[in-house]
């Protein structure tokens, strides 16, 4: 048991990820004691469904954070996905085509981000801020600067119901489909990051891009893949929002990119690159949603919710830094040679 635990803790970033899970349980139980309804099955199911968005966004953003980059265009890609698919569906285009077109557009944004950052070495903050504005602009323009009509007005009530149930209202094995979708995508990208070459290269680039390059790693390909992952996750969230509302909203996904950063950072993903586990991001997304859920059920105003969440994000990173360096900030002593 002890040995197994040691092995587990030897995985880089596992400490922070487990800490986040412990934090999650404490927060959840604390809210449950204040407001017993938090423990109800209905609330748990709702929690799982609403954390799915943050989980997906967090996975995408974590990919970028681990490479030492950032993706600010996430929220805009969410809006693009929602608006493009909703506009097409509300004018009668069948669901698969609408989804496919939205997917292609979203991935294109990811590819552009990847090329700007990976090939032209634009600072990721600037490059993705550019695509953030452009993406939001596209989301506005798709339906002529207006939110779309209900999608059922185009594809008919039956098809609209099927779409909405698949992504939001329906459930499988007692749990909302939204969570299953997020979980499957999470597992796929978890596998990609921890068990494949691409994942290894993502960590390497975040740790030391020069060394990675000199070892024959293609920075362009790796960074582009990371941005595509992030764009794909955003695309799925866009569909979820579209299904939830039954229409496209131009403001969908606003500031979601920051929710992604928060989920990753609470879970121990280093914003400087090189370390972090998606397991931590999972915990981070859950912490985030539990806070939102718990605070609103306890009747706290939105303002308080924001303040608490802000403090939690900074606190998580602060704790990590103090934990790692000690309060004095002394550089770690070199280990004696054996």
């Amino acid at each position: 048991m002890n040995k197994k635990f040691k092995q587990l803790m030897a995985v880089r970033g596992m400490g922070a990820a487990l800490t986040a899970f412990v934090g999650l349980i404490i927060i959840y139980v604390a809210f449950g004691l204040i407001q017993p309804q938090v423990f109800s099955m209905r609330n748990i199911l709702n929690l799982l469904r609403s954390m799915s968005k943050y989980l997906l966004i967090g996975v995408g953003q974590s990919y970028l954070l681990i490479t030492g980059n950032i993706d600010l265009s996430i929220g805009s890609v969410v809006a693009m996905s929602a608006m493009i698919s909703a506009t097409m569906m509300s004018s009668g285009v069948i669901v698969p085509i609408a989804i496919l077109v939205a997917l292609i557009c979203c991935l294109a944004v990811g590819a552009v981000n990847g090329v700007l950052v990976g090939k032209f070495r634009l600072p990721p903050f600037i490059a993705t801020m550019g695509t953030m504005f452009v993406g939001r602009g596209i989301a506005y323009m798709v339906n002529g600067n207006r939110n779309t009509n209900a999608i059922s007005s185009g594809i008919g009530k039956e098809a609209a119901d099927r779409f909405q149930n698949f992504f939001y209202y329906g459930s499988t094995a007692g749990v909302y489909n939204t969570f299953w979708i997020a979980l499957i995508i999470f597992l796929i990208f978890f596998f990609l990051l921890s068990k494949t070459r691409t994942g290894r290269h993502i960590y390497a680039i975040g740790s030391n891009p020069d060394a990675a390059k000199l070892s024959g790693v293609s920075v362009l390909a790796t960074v582009t893949k990371a941005y595509m992952v992030s764009a794909f996750c955003s695309f799925v969230v866009g569909l979820i929002l579209c299904a939830q509302a039954g229409m496209g909203n131009m403001e969908a996904g606003n500031v979601y990119e920051m929710y992604g950063v928060a989920a990753g950072v609470i879970g121990g993903v280093s914003p400087l690159g090189g370390t972090g586990l998606l397991l931590g991001t999972f915990a981070g997304a859950a912490v985030w949603q539990t806070l939102e859920n718990g605070l609103s059920m306890a009747g706290a105003p939105v303002g308080i919710q924001r303040i608490v969440i802000g403090i939690i994000v900074v606190g998580a990173v602060l704790m990590d830094i103090v934990f790692r360096r000690g309060i004095g900030g002394r550089k770690p002593a070199k280990k004696a040679d054996k």
Partner: peptide, 25 residues
């Protein structure tokens, strides 16, 4: 020195030419 500080010795040594078994490293 050109090493990825966050990776292990073996990970660094095989960076860019990782060994695969099926779909997994």
């Amino acid at each position: 020195l050109n090493m990825c500080r966050h990776l292990t010795v073996a990970e660094n040594m095989f960076l860019g030419r990782e060994i695969y078994k099926g779909f997994m490293l």
